[in-house]
Amino acid sequence: MAALDRHARARGSAQEEAPGLPPPGDAPLPGDDLPELVRRYCRGIVAAARYVTIDESGLERAAERWAQEGLASDPPALDSDDHFLDGGRSEVCAYLLTLDAINFGSGWFPTLRKRPGRSGYRTIASALADHFRAHGPWSNAELRAISAETVAHVLGQDPEHPLMALFARALRDLGAFLGEREPLAVVASADGSAKRLAATLARAMPFFDDRGFWKRAQITANDLALASVATFGDLDDLTIFADNLVPHVLRVDGVLRYDPALAARIDRGEPIPANSPPEREIRAAAVCACERLAALVGRPPREIDVWLWNRGQDRRYKARPRHRTRTVFY
């Protein structure tokens, strides 16, 4: 009970400081079979949805077209130009845990200083990679004391940008979670289970406790596996990593249909509030659609996610607004 009380207090404190945290009880607690909780939760949302629907015929057409374009054959990978993958296993593990601790903020990305030719995420990932190459990882003690000013300097951003304080908070949480452990000890503690690692992250750090979706907790396990830092026997049990880009690709390619008023709001660039019914329906529909896609093309949802996310970097997807939500979860 004491551990649960501490988790509730941490969530309460984070709720005051960071947007996007759902109230306790809004969705299930992060259990050991976390991906199955996501599937059940998303099916429930889709069954009662008012703003977003899955076009089954559009999904089947897209699956056939995408399979011809490499969806069922191209293996997922992390881009070595944007990520620090050339160090030792311990350093790469530290990099990915650090990066995934701050892998959020897409609702603010239009206001970031972008590196030439790079998106908001790739700007952050590559700037952090450059820091690791030049200086190595922060120690756990340095993470616990890190400031918004330090984060901004490393990422090439304005220290007053609201994301910098949120990133600093997330990194302090990571330092507290690590304690005196090496990053690889976190991987070892999962005992070969991506689901166990994801549940551990979601329980330990409020910014990972994305109730009902747990996008960032799951993607951390996937990133560690893609970088050959970890081997998980249940990796393919993960769902997609529900954000705002994968559903955007699904919408542009005719798989998701939005209520006309919601579509107009998104197309105008109007923010969609975190945890509002439309925002949760968009993410839940993406999860359920990609479960169906996975069955149609014979690939696990996590691979569907990586392929669609990379597809979303194409100019034609960037030419059309995606939904923007200011949240610490994506």
Rank of each mutant, 00 (worst) to 15 (best):
Y95H: 00
A170Q: 02
G44D: 14
A129E: 06
R181K: 15
A221S: 14
W138H: 08
A18D: 11
A176E: 15
A168L: 07
D267A: 15
L178T: 02
A49L: 00
E270H: 08
G20L: 04
V249Q: 13
A77M: 01
A3M: 11
V92K: 07
V306S: 10
F232L: 12
A285T: 05
I266Q: 03
D236I: 13
S73K: 00
F329G: 12
M164V: 05
D314P: 07
A14L: 12
P30W: 02
G192M: 10
R322T: 02
G233R: 04
Y95L: 03
L245W: 07
S276G: 10
A67R: 15
T111S: 15
A168T: 02
A141M: 09
A227M: 10
P301L: 04
G70M: 09
L235V: 14
V249D: 00
R122Q: 00
T150W: 05
A145D: 11
R65Y: 00
R144A: 07
G120Q: 01
E17I: 07
V38C: 09
R322L: 09
R43P: 01
G31A: 14
G58T: 02
F167W: 05
L166N: 12
L250M: 05
D243A: 14
T220C: 15
Y51F: 12
G12Y: 00
L71H: 04
R316C: 01
A170M: 03
K215Q: 14
Y51M: 10
D81E: 11
L59E: 07
L59S: 06
R40S: 14
V328F: 02
A10K: 12
R211T: 08
W309F: 15
T150A: 13
L201N: 06
L201P: 01
G20Q: 05
V154S: 03
L71S: 04
L78K: 03
L4W: 06
D55V: 02
G88A: 10
P300I: 02
R43D: 13
A295M: 11
A202Q: 04
S106M: 05
G120V: 01
A227S: 13
A230R: 12
Y41C: 08
A242G: 09
G212M: 11
R302D: 01
L262Q: 07
E69G: 04
E160D: 15
L4R: 12
P30L: 04
V297R: 14
R315L: 04
A286E: 01
F84N: 02
R257P: 00
A3E: 14
W138V: 06
V287R: 15
S13H: 09
L155R: 03
A263F: 03
A152L: 00
E69T: 04
E17Q: 13
A198N: 03
V246L: 08
E16G: 15
A199V: 04
P300A: 09
A49M: 08
K215F: 07
K215N: 14
V229M: 11
R50W: 00
A264I: 10
D100N: 15
A10Y: 08
R268W: 04
E279M: 11
G12K: 05
